[in-house]
């Protein structure tokens, strides 16, 4: 009963991971597969060769280090922006009338169902030098020369916030809508001003939603490839992109595996937090 799904996940999720770790210790070679085996059996001598060169290279190379810092920074800024836009939205959706709530939430989810690639593409036409945004701002007379947004980090931030916003709103909404409004009433009765009641009552009660939403945005954003590739510039350093280039352009599978391991290491703590949160959610339902 337990066996089948367990085995499926083990073979196609956990095992491949261990292989990545293994191959990060091998050496690139010409041929199929394009990496050297780790173990050899020759004249009854079993040898295990672990090449730590890739790790040494990665730790010593400035560009790699800059890429990690930049990935984390970009994911972090995107998460904060998502929270700043998503929280007020989730708040007002949760406080809307019963009949409006479902429709409003469906409208948040609808873009999530439509193609992610298409939604990122839609921004190219807006952000380009001769795109809609610059046309509009120049028509208004706010700017004289077009803003450079396409192929810059700004483009990536906008694309990330746009793509990940539904993931932020969903958990925030589900916490805010459950909230007992009588608590706010009590705060008001005791003389709290609306702003103070929000900070001392609503905000703490939605803490778990904030954490969950932030993790749902931050973790995938660190390894994002499509958005920096389409909207970012050649100087937009993201770890997912570096790994992709190592793999597809340089055909250096062991190096790509090493970068992947570093990415996993980077995400270990946020992933553990996410697991902890998910387990808690499941406990609550019971």
């Amino acid at each position: 009963m337990i066996g089948v799904p367990f085995l499926f996940l083990f073979v196609f999720f956990l095992l491949p991971f261990l292989l990545v770790v293994g191959i990060s210790f091998s050496q690139q070679q010409l041929g199929i597969p394009p990496y050297t085996p780790l173990t050899k059996m020759e004249d009854d001598v079993f040898t295990l060769v672990l090449n730590i060169g890739h790790y040494k290279f990665m730790l010593g190379d400035d560009l790699y280090f800059a890429t990690y810092i930049s990935s984390v920074k970009m994911a972090f800024v995107s998460t904060v922006l998502c929270l700043l836009i998503g929280y007020p939205m989730a708040y007002y959706i949760a406080r809307a009338s019963d009949s409006a709530r479902d429709t409003l939430m469906m409208m948040v989810m609808l873009p999530f169902w439509t193609s992610y690639l298409i939604r990122v593409y839609a921004w190219i036409g807006i952000l380009k030098n001769d795109g809609f945004l610059n046309q509009f701002l120049m028509w208004l007379g706010v700017i004289d020369t077009p803003l450079r947004l396409y192929h810059t980090n700004w483009g990536v931030y906008i694309g990330m916030v746009f793509s990940y916003l539904p993931f932020m709103i969903m958990p925030l909404y589900s916490h805010l809508v459950k909230m007992d409004l009588r608590l706010l009433e009590a705060a008001y009765d005791l003389g709290a001003r609306p702003w103070k009641a929000f900070v001392q009552v609503t905000l703490p009660l939605s803490k778990n939603g904030i954490i969950a939403g932030s993790l749902l945005v931050f973790i995938p954003a660190v390894g994002e490839y499509v958005i920096p590739e389409l909207l970012g510039g050649s100087d937009t350093l993201m770890i997912g992109r570096v790994m992709w280039d190592e793999f597809f352009n340089n055909m250096d599978w062991p190096m790509a595996a090493t970068v992947t391991c570093a990415m996993v290491l980077l995400l270990l703590v946020p992933m553990a937090m996410f697991q902890h949160y998910q387990a808690k959610v499941m406990e609550e339902v019971k």
Binding site: F13, P16, V20, P220, Y225, M243, L267, Q275
Partner: peptide, 17 residues
């Protein structure tokens, strides 16, 4: 985990498998 894990990680792992 697959809900949040970056797809590039899953991609390379499955390919190597």
């Amino acid at each position: 985990a697959p809900l949040v894990i970056p797809e590039v990680i899953q991609g390379i792992s499955l390919l190597l498998l």
